[in-house]
Design a protein around this nucleic acid. Structure first.
Lengths: 202, 202, 202, 202
DNA sequence: GATTAACCGAGACGGTACGTCACGTCTTTAA
DNA sequence: TTAAAGACGTGACGTACCGTCTCGGTTAATC
């Protein structure tokens, strides 16, 4: 998930150092209520059925209060999702295969839980015409890759991966098939799939 | 692309065997005009800016005439896309590497031309809540995989690919990274990427 | 009710004298089914909820078969209503008061049964922009006045009504208040009303 | 015409006593523009050719802005008509015949100007299935009767009208024939008609 | 008996208007 | 200055009927 600063503040209140803005300060409870309502409605109806009007009503908040904080529905969604820290941690098992097993196990669960959700697809589409969303989505993706990258770097140091292998591309090869099946083919994603995938790559 | 029968007819006229539907038959020119208008507007403004009202106006057709044929905007888009036969043909070069080079060359052009388009992302999202779109999208994807599958089977027969390799998963490994970069990471997709990808897999 | 000839035939088959048109003759059962369906739907939902599509479906008839016979919804309604001959017969009681009592008794029942119906109002509106309906409605009204006119003429001959009284206007005075209450004031129409009305006029 | 409160506000702002509704107040210029456009279009094309889309476009206003204020086309029309204060004033001439002459003179002009208009008929029909319109139409009618009632009461006090005459019914007798001719018979409404009418009643 | 013209059902066709929804902005009062 | 409330113009939605127009298939009178 992108750090909150990427999308959140329409008006930057960059730091507390800044001489405390004048006028009534923003109510933090509003932020919370809005994000809470957003998450709830995302779970209930997906991103498509999420409307700003709906969130405002549910959060007991004026629409302007939302637009004051986020520039678009997607910015709001991205931040609402970001509040759950969903980064996959990879415990260093000492071997590449061990690390990957632990990683894919979690990834598998994520994908299965995620089935039917339209949140990611919605953001992907939104990213097409909203550069800000594009940036945030890239950052989100990038963050998710970090633990895997670390594990692969460890393996490279241990000599388990050839020196001439581009690790970024290797990640694409390992994660891409998941995304492809999930979004386009509707194919199954299970342990057998993972095993076959690893058999091919390594 | 799905064969026309998948999405097209809201009312199925399953076969010609059926004794010719009663009533005034549908005007084929309407189908053509609508699909033509849809494609034009897709190119001009993407899937998000495509409205049924707009298509109807442009095609010189009543809205009902569209809804009579397609149940949703996405069904319409899928068929409009399908009408251009965009399957990638792989000429049999005799070697796996040769086949793949020719395939990826075209795929690369496609991806670059496709950059910024929101059509595929839009369909992916639509597939989340419209099973009909889901089905058609799967079929579309499946068709696109066929030439590649054929090439890999030739290679397997020639012994270039191990007998225990699951070709379906291999395709996922070859194509998935493209999709992943295109939709999620925003990463570059070029010849260097392809070379590194093939280096890893083979 | 207007004689059928006023509105009914879009194409006039004025008389049997004409050398019997060629081609398949119109099916009388269609006329019946259509009028039947129209009456039923009028009773169920009023003139506003009456649609040609609906009548056609209910009568098991093509829409063209209706338009071949009647030029508009209202023409159809007028004829459907006309099939019940609803003229009020006044039995000659020998005195004006007796005749009027018998007449108003029936008129009263009609008005009460008619309450809530939108058929007459609908026709009145239609008459504004359809001269054919205008003509038919006038004729319909005119026919309804005839029995009353006859009774008044008898009374005039008997000397119960002054010689200088315009009987047409007298009918207006006797019937107008009914219509006025029914359509515009929403006021009660009962025996007391009739008595007071007659008290004023005579 | 009904006082504005009858139909106007979909959400009642019953009185000024209520502590000023929250949120952005309705723009009075919208009301004016909408009513203005409605009246114009009524004059041009009658009630049948009046569409909400048309009014919205002409008034330069969104459709929702209209629906926020009036629940139906007819409610809108009724209020638009009411904004022109069309009550007929009867100057006290001292004699019944004088008052009536002055009244009928204006009524006559109204009826002639009104010829061909479908507004009243349209409202009458609408009143059949919309109780709100029914109520407003009754109130409208009731208001229109008031001046006449006052004149008749003056005449009664002067002894020109018998004590046992029900003035409400008398009004029905005086006005009903007009309505009846106008709506149903298509008969002429002129000074001769009025004279004959008065000859009969008085 | 073949031809022919009008009829019939079904339903497609271009339109128009409907009433609803959500968008993102703006305008009020109150804190 | 922020907040809640909600009005605002915009524009698309999917539906319902309109009256007309093809279709294939009757059904008689005429040739």
């Amino acid at each position: 998930m992108p750090t909150a600063t990427t999308l959140t503040p329409v008006t930057k209140d960059s730091a507390e150092t800044e001489a405390r803005r004048r006028g009534r300060p923003r109510d933090v409870r509003c932020d919370q209520a809005i994000l809470r309502a957003t998450l709830d409605m995302l779970i209930e109806g997906g991103a498509v059925n999420l409307s700003i009007d709906g969130v405002a009503a549910r959060a007991g908040v004026g629409k302007a209060t939302i637009y004051r904080r986020w520039s678009s529905k997607e910015a709001l969604v991205l931040e609402a999702l970001g509040s759950d820290d969903s980064m996959i941690e990879i415990t260093d098992t000492g071997t590449l295969r061990g690390d990957l097993d632990s990683y894919f196990e979690v990834l598998l669960q994520r994908f299965q839980a995620d089935q039917g959700s339209d949140v990611l697809p919605h953001l992907i589409e939104a990213a097409c015409y909203d550069p800000e969303v594009r940036r945030s989505l890239d950052e989100y993706t990038s963050n998710r890759r970090k633990p895997l990258l670390a594990a692969l770097q460890r393996a490279k140091r241990r000599g388990e991966i050839g020196n001439n292998v581009d690790l970024d591309v290797l990640i694409d090869v390992l994660v891409g098939p998941f995304v492809y099946r999930r979004l386009l083919t509707g194919g199954k994603v299970d342990r057998v799939f993972i095993r076959k995938l690893l058999d091919i790559v390594f």
